[in-house]
């Protein structure tokens, strides 16, 4: 699929397509377009270059997750949206620092945006077992479950002959992850 330049104003569907076609290129364009404004904003309000980078990247994570999930609602350009989310995250961070000056930003920007209490984390991290998977399995699972790439794209990228083969491979990888996790899984997570 040929990569296309991201227009300055692009509807959510076009942004989603651009992310699916060439994520690095799309994010690089968005980064170059919107980061300077966030950096100015954060520096003007006493933040560091690292602060600007953190809030901007967290805002991009929010944008990507909403775009690929099809839940993004844009009333302006994607760049303007990211600047707005960054401003919100930075204001939140400033208030948090005023209360708790020695703690770093939390890892989940979505929680900050929603102002929701953090969900209780499982006592063991499935994340560790994802990292232990082979590279191909990890890529297939993340492409499908996080980046929400269609199986046709995953099949083409990883050399599977058909969508059916890619589907079977995806479930084999999920089964592999499941076997690794099941050994330490405890019934308290059951509904």
């Amino acid at each position: 699929m040929p990569a296309t330049a991201l227009p300055a104003t692009s509807p959510p569907a076009a942004l989603r397509q651009a992310l699916l076609a060439d994520r690095t290129r799309t994010l690089t364009q968005l980064y170059a377009r919107a980061f300077p404004a966030v950096q100015r904003l954060v520096r003007r309000q006493g933040g560091s270059a690292e602060d600007a980078q953190d809030v901007f990247q967290d805002a991009l994570v929010v944008l990507v997750e909403q775009a690929v999930a099809g839940t993004l609602m844009l009333t302006a350009s994607a760049g303007t949206y990211v600047v707005g989310v960054s401003r919100h995250l930075w204001q939140h961070e400033l208030r948090r620092r005023a209360r708790l000056p020695h703690q770093p930003l939390p890892d989940d920007p979505g929680l900050l945006l929603a102002e929701a209490p953090a969900a209780e984390e499982p006592v063991f991290a499935v994340l560790d077992y994802v990292q232990q998977l082979g590279e191909k399995c990890r890529e297939v699972l993340l492409a499908f479950y996080y980046f929400q790439q269609p199986l046709t794209q995953i099949a083409a990228r990883h050399g599977y002959r058909s969508v059916r083969s890619a589907t079977v491979q995806k479930f084999k990888c999920l089964e592999r992850l499941r076997e690794k996790v099941r050994a330490v899984f405890t019934p308290e997570f059951a509904d």
């Binding site: 994570v61 499982p122 994802v130 980046f147 499941r178 997570f189």
Partner: peptide, 28 residues
């Protein structure tokens, strides 16, 4: 259990995306 797998995959995906963004920042 499968719900936990999806949760872990979401966390891993977010970590990967953050790595990609740090790389883009460094390149720019």
């Amino acid at each position: 259990l499968q719900r936990q797998l999806y949760h872990g995959l979401h966390q891993a995906g977010r970590q990967q995306l953050k790595r990609e963004l740090r790389t883009i920042h460094t390149q720019l």
